[in-house]
C-alpha cells in the first residue's frame, strides 16, 4: 500500500511537469487550430536558455524563467507571424510540414551549437527547488512540487485572463468562430500572434521549473513532446483543464505501469491509450464542450 501511495504521489508530481509542457500546446491548438510539431524544440530552447542564464549570470532557474517567458513569447509570435500566418488557409499537410520542418531545423541547430552532450543546471548552492520533503514514510521532490503548484497557478491565471478581460474573451471568441470575431471588430491575426506567443511563453516557465530535475540535450523535446501530444488529445484539444487532468492521468499511468508492468513498456501503455482515444473518442475524455470542435 505504501509503495502504491508513493507511486501515486510520484505520478501526480510527474503529471505536474507534463501539465506545464502541455498547457501551451493545447492553447495554441485550441485557438490557432495548428498542431505545433515544433513544441518540443521550443521546450529545448527554453531549457538551454535557462541553463545559459544560470551559467552566465548565476540566475536561479526560477528567476531565469521570467525573462525566458518573454523570450519564448517573442519566438512564438515570430513563428506565428512569419511561418504559420502565411499558411493559415493552406491544407493540413502543408501546416504540418511547416511545423515539422521548424522542429527538425531547431533540433539539429541545437545539436550543432551544443553538441550531443547532456548539460544540467548546477543546483548545489541553490536553496529552493532541491531536496525532498518527507511526510511519514512518503517523500516528495521539492522541485516537482513547485512545478505542480506553478502549473495550477498558471492555469488559474490563464483562466482568469480568458474569462474576464476583453482580450481574453476575444481570444476565446476567435477560437470558436473566426468569422464572427472578425465582425465584432477583432483583429484576428493579432489574436493568433498573441495566442501563439502565450503558448510558447508557457514553455519558458516550463524550462525554468524543469531545470532542477531534468538535464538538457538536443532531443530532449522529442522525449517530452510525444507525451504532451497524448495528454492534449486525452484532455480534449484546446481545453486547459482537460490538459491538466490528462497530464495527471498520464503521470500516474507512467508511474504505476513503470512499476507494475515493466519500465520499458510504460510508454507502450500510454501510447495505446492515445491511439484508442484518437479512434474512439477524438474529442478527448473531457472535450465534450468548449474549445473542442
Amino acid at each position: 500500500m505504501e509503495i502504491f501511495l508513493q507511486l501515486l504521489i510520484n505520478g501526480l508530481m510527474l503529471g505536474g511537469t507534463f501539465a506545464i509542457i502541455s498547457i501551451g500546446l493545447t492553447l495554441i491548438f485550441g485557438i490557432v487550430r495548428v498542431v505545433n510539431f515544433a513544441h518540443g524544440e521550443f521546450l529545448m530552447i527554453a531549457m538551454y536558455g535557462v541553463y545559459l542564464m544560470n551559467l552566465q549570470f548565476g540566475l536561479h532557474p526560477y528567476v531565469a524563467m521570467l525573462p525566458m517567458f518573454f523570450l519564448m513569447f517573442a519566438l512564438g509570435a515570430v513563428m506565428q507571424r512569419y511561418i504559420i500566418q502565411p499558411l493559415l488557409s493552406a491544407s493540413d499537410e502543408i501546416q504540418i510540414f511547416a511545423t515539422v520542418g521548424v522542429s527538425t531545423a531547431l533540433m539539429n541547430a541545437g545539436l550543432m551549437v551544443f553538441g550531443a552532450d547532456v548539460y544540467s543546471v548546477d543546483m548545489s548552492s541553490a536553496v529552493v527547488g532541491t531536496g525532498m520533503t518527507s511526510i511519514g514514510s512518503l517523500t516528495i521532490n521539492n522541485g516537482q512540487l513547485m512545478t505542480f503548484i506553478v502549473s495550477i497557478l498558471l492555469i488559474g491565471a490563464l483562466d482568469w485572463f480568458l474569462k474576464y478581460t476583453f482580450l481574453g474573451r476575444a481570444i476565446r471568441a476567435t477560437a470558436q468562430h473566426r468569422d464572427a470575431a472578425l465582425l465584432m471588430g477583432v483583429d484576428v491575426k493579432k489574436i493568433y500572434i498573441i495566442a501563439f506567443g502565450l503558448g510558447a511563453g508557457c514553455l519558458g516557465l516550463a524550462g525554468g521549473l524543469m531545470a532542477p530535475q531534468y538535464p538538457v540535450f538536443p532531443t530532449v523535446g522529442t522525449f517530452f513532446v510525444l507525451t504532451a501530444f497524448i495528454i492534449v488529445v486525452l484532455g480534449g484539444l484546446g481545453s486547459l483543464h482537460g490538459a491538466f487532468l490528462g497530464a495527471l492521468i498520464i503521470g500516474v499511468v507512467d508511474s504505476l505501469a513503470g512499476y507494475y508492468i515493466a519500465p520499458d513498456l510504460k510508454e507502450v501503455v500510454y501510447f495505446s491509450i492515445f491511439i484508442a482515444i484518437l479512434i474512439f473518442r477524438p474529442t478527448g475524455l473531457f472535450g465534450a464542450g468548449r474549445g473542442s470542435e
Binding site: 474569462k163 474573451r169 471568441a173 468562430h177 468569422d179 464572427a180 465584432m184 471588430g185 468548449r290
Partner: peptide
Amino acid sequence: RQLFPFITVRDNLLMGAYK
C-alpha cells in the same frame, strides 16, 4: 446568427463591445 457557441450569453454580448 453566428454566435460563439461555447461561451456564455453574457460574454457573447460583451464581445459585441470589443472595439
